[in-house]
């Protein structure tokens, strides 16, 4: 219904070309809330705005952000940020990094919880927040979100590696996309260093499978070429699971199973599986997906909705 309200806002916008133009994605008013001020930050001064939290955005690749504050008498302010990320994969990555659920209400994926509404679309990550929601503030936030969603003209593709996740037993919204090694440990602690040589040239995703009491984690890293993949795989096997040189799965001291394999330039590994068969089966499913994608010569990225 909020999409239907957009014409009533009667604001013109253009496709942003620079930082200042991001303001064209924002209304000056939403219900009783009026624009108070704008601030702009780039990757050199984002610390001045959100200090340590800046690193998350920088780790994904970030250009500029507009922060607009809206005020309303007798209500808490609403703060809206539009992050112009380097690419769609970065906006998607930030969203998957912090969302607990995907409500698909705005953009290409959204989440609303108490005091916070986030979504992503194209190469933009959008956040709306207030100290505490009331019925009025939530309505105003959703109206602003709808305006922004409509103002950003295009959607963009999710990273192709998402299409390599087997659908069976995948926890809904239980995956995180990244290309900075810090996020290797997003769901499951692997190592305190960059054991898989993750960098801006790689695509990584970690995903949850099965119920909480029988949880497996699948890690996929796509390298730019087979040479890089082989080097990373060799390091991983040497430093994490040397048993894989002689066996196809390893039982860890906590009685969970782990395995790993390389399919051309794709590294795949299963952690915390409740049994050997589950670990190998999940890996084989990845192999089938990877083979299918290779045979089709196109990324199979439409099988899972972000």
């Amino acid at each position: 219904m909020y999409r239907l309200m957009i014409p009533a806002l009667l604001f013109l916008y253009v496709v942003p070309m620079n930082a200042a133009d991001l303001s064209a994605f924002l209304p000056v008013q939403s219900n009783e809330w009026s624009m108070e001020s704008d601030q702009y930050f780039n990757n050199e001064n984002l610390y001045d705005y959100i200090d340590g939290a800046a690193e998350l955005y920088l780790s994904y690749g970030f250009n500029t952000v507009i922060s607009r504050r809206y005020a309303c008498p007798d209500e808490m302010d609403i703060v809206v940020e539009i992050f112009d990320m380097n690419g769609a994969r970065d906006a998607f990555g930030v969203f998957t990094n912090m969302r607990e659920k995907n409500q698909h209400e705005f953009g290409q994926g959204s989440q609303q919880i108490e005091g916070s509404l986030i979504f992503w679309k194209d190469h933009y990550f959008v956040s709306l927040s207030t100290h505490r929601n009331t019925g009025r503030s939530l309505a105003a936030m959703k109206k602003i979100a709808a305006f922004i969603d409509h103002a950003i003209p295009n959607e963009n593709q999710v990273p192709a590696i998402l299409g390599l996740l087997p659908e069976q037993n995948l926890v809904s919204e239980g995956y995180c996309y990244f290309h900075h090694y810090i996020w290797l440990n997003s769901y499951y602690y692997i190592a305190n260093y960059n054991i898989l040589d993750v960098n801006d040239q790689t695509d990584g995703i970690v995903a949850k499978y099965g119920s909480p009491d029988r949880r497996s984690y699948l890690l996929l890293i796509q390298y730019p070429d087979e040479q890089a993949a082989q080097a990373a795989y060799a390091q991983f096997v040497s430093e994490f699971s040397p048993e894989l040189k002689a066996a196809n799965a390893v039982r860890l001291k906590d009685d969970t199973w782990h395995t790993a394999a390389l399919y051309e330039r794709l590294f795949a590994s299963v952690f915390n599986a409740p049994g050997k068969e589950e670990a190998i089966q999940l890996l084989n499913s990845v192999k089938s997906k990877a083979q299918l994608a290779t045979d089709e010569k196109v990324p199979n990225h439409k099988t899972i909705q972000p």
């Binding site: 959100i50 939290a53 912090m98 989440q111 916070s116 986030i118 927040s129 100290h131």
Partner: peptide, 12 residues
């Protein structure tokens, strides 16, 4: 115990 958004906060 958890964070969300650039201001890392929700009362939830």
């Amino acid at each position: 115990f958890s964070s969300v958004g650039p201001h890392s906060f929700s009362p939830d």
